[in-house]
Structure formats: structure tokens, C-alpha cells
Nucleic acid binder design. Structure first.
Lengths: 225, 225
DNA sequence: AAAACTTCTTACCCAATGCCAACACACTCC
DNA sequence: GGAGTGTGTTGGCATTGGGTAAGAAGTTTT
């Protein structure tokens, strides 16, 4: 874990840094806002401990500037100002926590643990193949920025094929994964949907990215020809 | 946003619930730990406000039990016990924040915003999409300065869609997050509220910012076509 | 307790979607 | 080449999902 401590009271700063380093965190620190922004623009921190009363650019300015470009880095405000309005302002400006001075190191450390533990974040997974891109979060397919309008089944088929790129997928397998309730497999509805999907893809891509291997199934990706 | 308040002091519980509902949150509540665990095993909440001093199973037990199976749901502890050791214990047991009583509603609300919003979205207090802005602080929607008058459900739906911009949100998901008590999903009340919301938005924006993808859900933001 | 507003239910409409049948095509094996 | 099997395409039709209006049933406000 890489932390940054921004605190102009040297003694306090050193106390914090020392105790965090003892806990095996990797800690940078600085005493003013300018330096802080400089560090923040170069390094990537997991968590920033930010004092509000800083010489030069004050803490709120640092926070707002940071948040213009970076929403991800966690920020814990440390401030002598413990009024409700200050807390509300700090949190609404994008801080993840607000601890009023004076505080106990034990509490600070507990809050740091809580903030650095958080796993996630669910980022969009982009599948791509040829000029085709599929965003699994918004469940849309795009070809150089242009969104395709696909029906539900078409979307489901395309997603499944793109997830399993390079491997032939049998009709039966598609039935099982794209259809809710196993329908009788004598129907040719899959072929109908594949057909519609191909038509749309061909219209935009200029070629058909879905290949068929007789008896095996449908296949996207894999080697080129 | 779907919240659960667990607090045995009836008066306080009601105060909190009422003030949150006024902000158009969907709020469930209960007075003891057993009931809480029951609710938590059935419903899916965005955030849980947890008192520690509960009859029956106490708050820490509830938290630990929850965390055995669910690391995702956010928990904010509200406690009369403000000692450092209590805070450390609560946070280390998996709470995401700890607020000592007595507290100001304004601070509670700010911390709720911090915990519910930043989990999903990159944005802070103001969510925007098209010409539409949603202020998560006052929980009101505006179009170039003009405030829309929305009902509670409309506000809840709009907020949820705006927080999850770029992703289709199913009717079922809306049911879970905007409605307090799960209603049978055969009802089309969602469609009715969506219809009303769209009418209001259309009147002011001149277009409908809510798109529908049949079988998938409703969608705001994302690319244009 | 009436008034005003919000929410839910019912009912009906329309359009998007998926299914089927029928047929065309391609490949393989003889 | 012909028979057989697997696949592609099309258009019609039934179904489903979603939109809206109107009124009933709750809520909150006055």
C-alpha cells in the first residue's frame, strides 16, 4: 500500500509517517499543497491523508484539483476543523472519510485499513475481435464507435461467441446459455438468429466474423485467413 | 438507493428514517439484530446503518455474521460508544464507517452520500446527463437552473438510473433499489412511474433521456446514436 | 375529515421480438 | 451426379414486453 501524508505540522507529520511505516506501509509525505499536487500528478497512491490547513494551496483546493482528474484515489481528511459544515463540505468534495483532530493513532490506522481494504471496482470488460468491440457492462457492440442495435438474442449469442473466442460453440451450447428455458432443439431458431446477427455485422464490418464448422459449431476469432 | 436502518431507540430510528425518506431514499428499518439478519438475508441493500447496542443479537454480531457471506454491502456504524477501541473494533470487523452518537443529521447524510455514490460512480455531488443535473445533496433534478418537481419514486428511479449511467438497469433491479418492500413483480407500476417521469423530463428537456432495451432494462447516458 | 397528492391496479394498445415452416444452398459420401 | 445431412435465409404469425390513460386505493397535508 502506497500512502501520501500531507500535513504541515512537522511534528505531527513525522509521528504519523513513522507509525505508518512501522506498519509496513510505503509512505510519502510533504508539507504543503503545491508539493502535494506535484506528487499526486506523478505517483499513484492508494490513499492520501490530507490536512486542510496548509500553507499555499489549502487542503480543499488540493482535494478539488485532484478530483478533477482522479476519482479513484482514496482521500482521508485530517482536520482541526471539526464542525459539521466542514465535514459535509469535505465529504461532498469527494473525500472518502473525515477525521477531526485531535485523533488517536489507533483510530486513524483502523480507518486506513478500512479504506485500503476495499476491493473492486467493477470496470467494464471489453471484448474485441476484428473491428468489433463488445462492452459487457452496457451490453453493446460497437464498430469504430458506432453502436449496433441488436436484439436480446442476438446480443446474447454475440456475447457468448466473443467470450469463447477461438473455440467452436455448438448450437446446443448456445441453446443452453442464451435461452432461458431449454426449448426443443429441433427448432432452427438459432440459425435464424445467427443469420440476422450476421446480416447486421456484415453491413457494418464488411465481412462475416462468424465462421461455421459443420458438425462442430460457430466460431469467432482464432486464426486469420 | 435502498437503505436499512437498525436502531432500537424507536424515536431516533423514526427520526432517521423519516429524514431519509424525505430525501426519497427507500428505507427499511428494524429494532433488533435477529430481524436485521433476516432482512439482510432476503433483501439487497446499498447501505446499512447499524446501531451497536441492540437487544438480542448485538450490532457487532450482526456485522460479523453479515460479513461472513457478504463483503459488498456497505455498513455505517452508529454508536453511542465513541471510544477509540470501539471504533477500531467496528472498522476492523468490516464496517465502512463509524459515526459516534450524538451526531448531526447533516454529517450522517454526507457520509451516506459518500458511501452510496462513490461505490458506483466517478462523480460526486452532481450527476449529469444530457442537459439534466441531479443534485445528490438536495436530491433534486434541475434543467438549466429550473428544478423539476418529482415524486419520491420518480426521484428514486432517476437517481438510480443516473448513478448507473451507461448500463441497462432491469425492472427487477429498480424494484429492489427504489421500492421499500418487494412487491410482486407482475405489477407494471414501474412502467407507470417511468412513464410519468419521462413525461416530465420530455416537457423540460424536449427529448427523452431514458432509453429502453427490451428484455434488458432502462438505460441513461452511454453513447449517442 | 376533507383536500391534495402519490402510488398501485386494471385494461388496452402497439411494436419489437422470437418461432416456425418452407425452401435454398453447401458439403460429403456413395 | 444423386441422396443425405447440416446450414442459411425469408416471410408470416403468435407472443411478449413495454407505454399510456383512467380510476381506485393509500398517504400526507391542511
Amino acid at each position: 500500500m502506497h500512502l501520501l501524508v500531507i500535513e504541515d505540522e512537522r511534528a505531527l507529520c513525522e509521528t504519523i509517517v513513522r507509525s505508518l511505516r512501522r506498519l509496513a506501509y510505503s509512505v510519502d509525505y510533504c508539507y504543503d499543497g503545491e508539493k502535494a499536487l506535484e506528487l499526486l500528478s506523478v505517483e499513484r497512491y492508494d490513499l492520501v491523508l490530507l490536512d486542510l490547513n496548509l500553507p499555499g494551496k489549502d487542503g480543499m483546493t488540493v482535494l478539488r484539483t485532484l478530483r478533477q482528474t482522479d476519482r479513484e484515489t482514496r482521500v482521508l481528511i485530517l482536520s482541526a476543523r471539526g464542525e459539521v459544515e466542514d465535514k459535509v463540505e469535505g465529504l461532498d468534495a469527494g473525500a472518502n472519510d473525515y477525521l477531526a483532530k485531535p485523533f488517536h493513532l489507533a483510530e486513524l490506522e483502523a480507518r486506513i485499513r478500512s479504506l485500503t481494504l476495499r476491493q473492486f471496482t467493477q470496470q467494464d470488460v471489453l471484448l474485441s475481435c476484428g473491428g468489433l468491440t463488445f462492452d459487457t457492462r452496457s451490453r453493446t457492440a460497437t464498430v469504430n464507435g458506432q453502436t449496433l442495435t441488436l436484439t436480446r438474442k442476438e446480443t446474447g449469442i454475440l456475447e457468448y461467441l466473443m467470450v469463447h473466442q477461438g473455440r467452436p460453440v455448438s448450437q446446443e451450447e448456445l441453446m443452453d446459455h442464451v435461452w432461458d428455458n431449454s426449448v426443443d432443439s429441433f427448432s432452427n431458431s438459432i440459425r435464424v438468429h445467427i443469420s440476422a446477427l450476421r446480416k447486421k455485422l456484415r453491413a457494418v464490418l464488411g465481412y462475416d466474423p462468424i465462421r461455421n464448422r459443420i458438425g462442430e459449431g460457430y466460431l469467432m476469432g482464432g486464426e486469420e485467413e
